[in-house]
Design a binder for these strands. Sequence first.
DNA 1: TTGCCGCCCGACCGATCGGTCGACTACAGT
DNA 2: ACTGTAGTCGACCGATCGGTCGGGCGGCAA
Lengths: 211, 211
Amino acid sequence: MHPTSREKILDVAEARFAQRGYAGVGLREVADAAGLGKSSLFHHFPSKASLYGAVLDRVIERIEVRMHGALEASGGPRAQLSAAVVGLVDTLAEDPPAARLLLRTVFEDDDLSPTETPELVAADQRLDRLIARIARVITAGIEAGVFRPISVPDAIQTLIGAVVYPFASGEFGEKLAGEIFSAEAIARRKREILTLIEHGWMRPHSQGEKS
Amino acid sequence: MHPTSREKILDVAEARFAQRGYAGVGLREVADAAGLGKSSLFHHFPSKASLYGAVLDRVIERIEVRMHGALEASGGPRAQLSAAVVGLVDTLAEDPPAARLLLRTVFEDDDLSPTETPELVAADQRLDRLIARIARVITAGIEAGVFRPISVPDAIQTLIGAVVYPFASGEFGEKLAGEIFSAEAIARRKREILTLIEHGWMRPHSQGEKS
DNA sequence: TTGCCGCCCGACCGATCGGTCGACTACAGT
DNA sequence: ACTGTAGTCGACCGATCGGTCGGGCGGCAA
C-alpha cells in the first residue's frame, strides 16, 4: 500500500541504475525521486555499493522464485527448460528495468566485483545457484539423449543473450521491433526462444521420448 | 608504427569506455593512459560526448567493413547470412572491447541519444544501414523459401543477443565458459550460432536449394 | 630572424560526487 | 514524565567531474 521508505528507495534505485548505470546515478537523484533527503539513504543502506547490491539481489531473487518451480517440476529436461525460459521471460517482462540492470551488472565487473559488500556476494551466490540448476537440467537432457551433445556453458550464454538482451535494448530495440514490453512482443520472444531451443538443441523428435 | 596522439586516445578511450561506461570514465584517466595532459584531449575532440562518438563510430565502421563483403557476396541468403555472422564474430574477437562498448551504447540511450554530436549520428546511421542490410538478406531468404517465415526484427534481436553479448560478458562469461577470446571459444561461438540458424531459422533442407 | 601554427601543458572554474555530522521529530516502553 | 530509538534533515567535507584559458614549445615558411 504505502510502501516503506526502504522499498521506495529500492524501486527508484532499480529504475535509475538500470537506465544510467552505477556510475551514472547520483544518490541525490535517487533520494529526490524517493521523496527523501540524501542523508536519509544512509540510514537504510551504508553505502552506494550496498544499495546497488540490495537492488540487484532483489531482482535476482524474483527470477529465482519464478524459475525454481519450473526447474524442479516433474517432466523431462525438455519441459523443465522450456518452462524455465517462459518463467524468465515473464519475470523480465513484469519488471522492465530488470534485464538492463542484470546486463549492466555483468559489465561492471571492475567497479563492483572486488567490493566486499555482503548484498553483492549474496546476489552473486544466488545467481550461481540458479545457473548451476539450469546447467544441470541441460546436462541431464544431453545424457538422456533428448538434447544434442552441445556445450552447456555456451548454450547458457546464448540463452542469456537471446532472452535477456532484447528486454534490455530500450529505444534501440523499440526502433527495431516496436514496443518491447507489449503482450505481443513478449509472446514473440517466447516463441522465438522456444523454437530455437526445439530445433537447435533438441534431437529430432522420436516417438516415445519423455519431453 | 608510432600511432598518432589521436589514435592513441581513441584506443585507450575505447578500452576504458567499454570497461567502465561513459559516466564511469574520467577524461583525466583517458589522458593519463594516453600519455597526455587532460587539456590536450580537447585539441583533438571538442567534448567527451564527441570522443565517445568517435570511438563508437570507429568500432561500427570496422564491423561494417568486415560484413559488407559477406552481405553482398554471391550465393543465396543462407550463405550470405552465415558469412556475415562469421565476419561479425571475427571482428568482435579481434577487438575485445567492441562488444561491450556496443551493448553499453544501446543502454545509454538517455545520456547519449539526445546529444547532437555529429560523430554519434554518423555512427547511428552506419549501424542503421548495416541492420537494414541484414534484414534485407533475411527477408530475401524467407521470400525464397529458404528460411521459415520468422519475424525479422526479432531474429535480428536474437542474433545481436546471442552473438554480441557473450563477447561482452567479461569475468562472468569467463567463470562460466573459460577464456572468452581464445581461438576455441571463438570457434565454439561460431558453431553455436551457425547451428542455431541452420536448425532454427532454415527450413529443413531439400535438395537443389541454392544455399 | 621573424612570425605562424599545431600540439601540449598546468592552473583554474563551478558543479557534483559519495559520505559524515549533529540536531530535530515522533513514537515506544517503562 | 523520562528515555531510547528509528527516521529524517540541512550543512558541510574533500575529491573529482567536464571544460576553459593563457601560455610554452618546436617545426616550417618567408
